[in-house]
Amino acid sequence: MIVLDTGAILPRRGGIFGALSDAFWRHPKLLVFLMLTPPVLWFGIIYLGSLLALLLQSFYSLDEFSGLVVPEFTLSTYAQLFRPSNFDIIVRTVLMAAAVTLASGIVAFPIAYMAARYAKGKWKALFYLGVMLPLWSSYLVKVYAWKLILAKEGILNWVFESLRLTPLLDAFLSIPVIGGNSLSVSYTGTFLVFLYIWLPYMILPTQAALERVPVNLIDASGDLGATPFQTFWHVIFPLALPGLVAGSIFTFSLTLGDYIIPNIVGSSRQIIGQAVYAQQGSAGNIPLAAAFTVVPIVIMGLYLWMAKRLGAFDAL
């Protein structure tokens, strides 16, 4: 046994870190204060502050003749949102976001399930790599790549042609609203690119939630007489639901806010992101742009409230 020649109380550690450790131990709140100040400043002032400034702007209006913002409280800008041309934009965006979210959920779940339940070691690393790799390359590169894939002269058309399925594609493109001249200028094209770009944001939280489902709950369910399908439906799915909802918050709100993808791949009819971009840019109508930005916030609030009402967070 090594006998150290020390007293019951060890001497102070020297140096600035020693002094700091002692000070933090004696005043734990000091540490919390120091750790929280920068993020609170950032989040509170810069982020929430600018959000509030934006909200404030939405209660101003634009003088139609002078083109100047009138800093007086009014609800007229919000009323403008309900003009058919603007309201269409909102409905279109929400439908697009809902479709993208639903499809991501359907595509992501099996992938996340496989990764969480069956992938081990090397395969798990491969899964993370596969899901994250697309996030490492530029968003613009990926969107333009999709434009090329979906274009009239693009690879997808070529595939359909080689399989002699062009009539099928043409029939699809002739469907109003979702069709168009080619996939790259149709809503379907926008939808496919959104689906591809946001998919990792759906897969990762879903996989994390599935991973946290304890194996013994699955055993217990089987033990009590549940077939694998019943176990999935009554145990695994409800426990993974918060992850799916978290993922859907990403895909839904990202779609509500994006303006680049529909600009590059899509029809000429705008969605909210593009409307905000146009209003605050060329049109110089900051109040209307601000009012448009409030829409996704309200919709997300409603969505979360509904999800909670439906019990999506019961497993948390």
Partner: peptide, 27 residues
Amino acid sequence: PYRRNVNTVFQDYALFPHLNVLDNVAY
């Protein structure tokens, strides 16, 4: 297991966290 009329009380209970006690028992 689901075709065996044998039930287990697990060491760590393995109760379903998303169900209340009654629904756990009635599972």
